[in-house]
Simulated scan of single mutants.
Amino acid sequence: MTAFNFIKKFARDEDGATAIEYGLFAALIAAVIVGSVKLLGTTVNTGFETVLTALGVTL
């Protein structure tokens, strides 16, 4: 295989680009999950603290 044919084949190969796209999607999904858990965790913690205060329970 000549160098020119190798370069043409390499330029047409899209496996690396597909892997990078999947990696970016996974990173985006992970970021959304982390943000959601952080937001919901704070909200849930506030709710539990409100209930504990209403019941007069101290930790």
Rank of each mutant, 00 (worst) to 15 (best):
M1H: 09
M1W: 09
T2V: 13
T2E: 11
T2S: 15
A3S: 12
A3E: 15
A3F: 13
A3N: 14
F4H: 10
F4E: 14
F4T: 15
F4D: 10
F4G: 08
N5A: 13
N5Q: 15
N5H: 08
N5C: 10
N5D: 15
I7Y: 15
I7W: 09
K8E: 12
F10A: 12
A11S: 13
A11Q: 08
A11V: 09
R12H: 11
R12P: 02
R12Q: 10
R12G: 07
R12K: 15
D13L: 00
D13V: 09
D13T: 07
E14C: 04
D15M: 04
D15P: 00
G16I: 05
G16R: 07
A17V: 07
A17F: 12
T18A: 14
T18S: 08
A19G: 05
A19I: 05
A19E: 07
A19N: 05
E21F: 12
E21A: 14
E21G: 08
E21K: 15
Y22R: 13
Y22C: 05
Y22F: 12
G23H: 04
G23S: 11
G23N: 08
G23A: 04
L24T: 06
F25W: 14
F25E: 09
A26V: 09
A27Y: 03
A27M: 07
L28W: 03
L28C: 03
L28A: 09
I29K: 10
I29A: 10
I29P: 01
A30T: 08
A30P: 01
A30E: 02
V32I: 08
V32K: 02
V32Y: 01
V32L: 11
I33L: 11
I33C: 01
V34M: 07
G35T: 06
G35F: 01
G35Y: 00
S36D: 03
V37T: 11
V37L: 06
V37C: 01
V37Y: 04
K38Q: 03
K38P: 00
L40P: 01
G41P: 01
G41N: 02
G41F: 02
G41W: 00
T42Y: 02
T43E: 02
T43L: 13
V44F: 02
N45M: 05
N45W: 02
T46N: 13
G47T: 02
F48K: 05
E49L: 05
V51E: 03
V51A: 15
V51D: 02
V51L: 13
V51S: 05
L52K: 12
T53H: 04
T53A: 14
T53P: 00
T53Y: 02
T53F: 00
A54G: 09
A54W: 07
A54K: 12
G56P: 00
G56N: 03
G56T: 10
G56F: 05
G56H: 02
V57H: 00
V57F: 10
V57P: 00
T58L: 06
L59I: 12
L59W: 09
L59V: 07
L59Y: 11
L59T: 10
